[in-house]
Amino acid sequence: MNPQFLLEVNHLKKYYEIPQGMFKEKIVVRAVDDISFSIKKGETFALVGESGCGKSTTGRTILRLTEPTDGEVRFDGEDIRSLSYEKMRLLRSRMQMVFQDPYASLNPKKTIREILMEPLRVHNKYEKKERMDKIRKILEIVGLSDHHLDRYPHEFSGGQRQRIGIARAVVLQPDFIIADEPVSALDVSVQSQVINLMLELQKEFGLTYLFISHDLSVIRHMTDRMAVMYLGKIIEVGNTDDVFENPKHPYTQALISAIPANHPRESKDRIVLEGDVPSPANPPSGCAFHPRCPAAMEICSRRVPEETDFGSGHTAKCHLYQMNEKREEKDEHAVIHS
């Protein structure tokens, strides 16, 4: 185990079985299909993909909010899948989550004081007197104040609620936070507020983030490395800058070309994908992207592409690059024989 990695995910799978009736075969939906990645301490790692590609499920499976079907999740060297419920519960003080919908993720019957006190109480952190000070401090950091303490969630705006959600996640001073589309339910004007808050908190507490999003501009702004998911599989991983500058997989290229231009006169060559994302219950053969891929070849529908390494941790799974490799191999042979 490499000590610089805080989280390692190996061959993680989450399948959902949908019974079709007594005598019919069950449909297996491969929401997360054999994905592996690692996150270094202190970095922000992004999972990108269209709706329904399994990125949220990945986040929830890592925290064991849904049990994985197979695979390994190592947090700080410890395999969390083998932990008992109680041990896992205690470990949760080190790994927290910020949810997508700030309207659904706060209990409507609890005041802000109760919502923020609960994590401290259940994990028995700090002396009882100290807790209130910690809560006040965290409230101040997220831009709320004392007089909000006894209000209920419905009395706040979406942005305020999301900041309460972030405060709840941070109040325990965890090492690792999974943020599941934390800004996609918010107005654009509030989004940057929340994102800057998350960056500030990262600096202050040395947090490691797994940032799940479909918003590429946000990802470019705040993440160090990113993984692109398509139909439950990771198809490209790399440093965020590398991937944006030089996307390898045709799907990544299409995603990045879809970012709105910065200036009205700026011309962009858009790659417009046709068709919809296929159902994960019945994924296409070979490379799952081939029916929509502008560069699809004959082999794409037959074989699942292997990983190609482009250096400095940038990898992609696409036959385009494997063909090159093979051609090079052949060339080498040719040279030797001549």
């Binding site: 949810f99 659904a104 993720s105 706060l106 209990n107 019957k109 609890k110 259940v122």
Partner: peptide, 26 residues
Amino acid sequence: EKEFITASVATGVPRIQILFKHILPN
């Protein structure tokens, strides 16, 4: 199945407390 219950699981609230403090009041 509500998200705030998932959130309290993620926070690490014991199951019995989730029942009495989050489900029962609702």
